[in-house]
């Protein structure tokens, strides 16, 4: 069976590139809504840009595969998904860190407030 191609591009190239473009647009939109800083925008645009670029120009992956001694360049697809999984890992890490920070802030505030309350109660006695 012949692999599906679109204007000479393989299906995985089309899907990955569209996915990356959507993610970049999403990040720009979040930046414009002041939900992301400029630094975050740059990091993610570069990250998605690199993933999209690798999908669009798979010979880069072939070259990297050769350098690392991977025999077949067809593993490019898996390499791209490996990058996406890495991204997912980092993203999860950031979310967990964010939640951790909120819990910490709450714990710290509770500790200081409860100390103040104890002080007032001791004075009343």
């Amino acid at each position: 069976m012949n692999a599906f191609t679109f204007h000479g591009f393989a299906l995985y190239q089309v899907i990955t590139t569209i996915f990356c473009l959507v993610m970049i647009l999403k990040m720009i939109s979040r930046y414009r809504r002041h939900e992301r800083t400029l630094k975050e925008l740059i990091v993610w645009v570069v990250t998605w840009g690199v993933i999209g670029g690798l999908a669009f120009f798979p010979f880069i992956i072939d070259y990297i595969a050769q350098v690392f001694g991977v025999k077949s360049g067809t593993s490019g697809f898996f390499a791209i998904w490996l990058i996406i999984l890495t991204y997912a890992f980092f993203r999860t890490f950031v979310v967990v860190e964010h939640i951790d920070k909120k819990i910490t802030d709450l714990t710290r505030k509770a500790a200081l407030d409860s100390h103040d309350i104890d002080k007032v109660l001791k004075k009343d006695k």
């Binding site: 819990i103 910490t104 714990t107 710290r108």
Partner: peptide, 20 residues
Amino acid sequence: AIKHVINCGVGAATQTGIDF
């Protein structure tokens, strides 16, 4: 003495002490 109800880490504890 000030108490964190859960273990947050030495950085968080230091910041609580500094705030106090």
